[in-house]
Amino acid sequence: MTQLIQSLSEISDRYDALFVDLWGCVHDGVRAIPSAVAALQTYRKGGGAVVLVTNSPQPRVNVEKQIARFGVPDDAWDTIATSGDSARAAMFTGVVGQKVWFIGQPHEQGFFMPLKVVSDPVEITQVPLEQAEGIVCCGPEDPLADPAIYRPQFLLAKQNGLKLLCANPDIVVDRGDSREWCAGALAQLYTEMGGESLYFGKPHPPIYDLARRRLAELGRDVANSGILAIGDGIHTDISGAMGEDIDSLFITGGLAAAETKTREQPDPDALATYLQTAETTPSFAIGFLR
């Protein structure tokens, strides 16, 4: 049964490390959430390690720059694991071939930056769909457009037997008051059409392996029982944590704010109904990270 709590400090002393989602928990896509920043700063002062585990398709260095612009200070976190870095490692081993059709926005070209951790990487070339051996998807070119606009291209891709590498399994994300489509929506469509999609972010294992490696780089050897995952995505953050056998704290005031009737805290009955429908049981729940 999910326990409703008032603050992270109620349970934080049980855990040596946090795997914290960014979007919807620490920032809203525009600016940092002050209560979340303060909670993470307090946790770190007590000796805990904070790993920001994000489904961003961007390399870690780009995410560092982005959250700095949003006002998330360096002392609120220790290290970052991104879906983008996990997916990039797979791309440079050739999982979708060497000639790829790229779906994404111009600022996401950082996905193709060299990655030192892959020995003997394959040379990746971006080509038109007709010449491609595979697809790399960081997200739709227009995040506000219906993903169905890609049906004609996906039909050709499926006929050619192309695999789609999804750099961000999120379906949607809220940027301030605006809801945008993510790469996961395109991968879902491609799979529904009979194509094969490869995932590397939450809730899939590769990003958790990366997060544990990031912890090890800090000199932290933390068992699953000492890790708490925090996030607002019931099918990404929470399902992923359950799959990894780690405890989770569900932030109800993010993507599920309407369904859980969250103001400061979720309505208990609405929360119970939402979790029952999602067939998912987080260890804890709270309106906002604080």
Rank of each mutant, 00 (worst) to 15 (best):
E244R: 05
A81H: 02
K65P: 02
G71T: 08
P59D: 03
V26W: 04
D174E: 11
L249V: 05
Q41M: 11
V222S: 03
K45S: 14
G231R: 10
P114D: 09
T236Q: 09
P282I: 01
S283Y: 02
S35V: 01
T281G: 00
A17M: 10
V136R: 04
T42D: 12
T236H: 11
T273Q: 15
R179N: 02
R88I: 02
A148P: 00
V51T: 07
V53Q: 15
S35C: 02
Q41W: 00
L249R: 05
E244S: 06
G71W: 14
D209S: 13
V100R: 07
P282N: 04
A36Y: 02
Q98T: 14
G194M: 08
G71N: 12
I124C: 05
N168K: 11
Y208M: 03
I171P: 02
A285T: 04
G243T: 08
Y190P: 07
V20R: 02
G24Y: 08
R44A: 01
E192F: 04
C137R: 03
P121T: 09
R263C: 11
G104N: 04
D221H: 13
L18H: 05
K99D: 02
S56C: 07
Q3H: 10
L115R: 09
V72T: 08
L129K: 11
D247H: 13
S283E: 00
P140C: 06
E244M: 14
P59Y: 04
L271M: 13
P152H: 12
Q265K: 12
F284R: 04
G97N: 07
G161P: 07
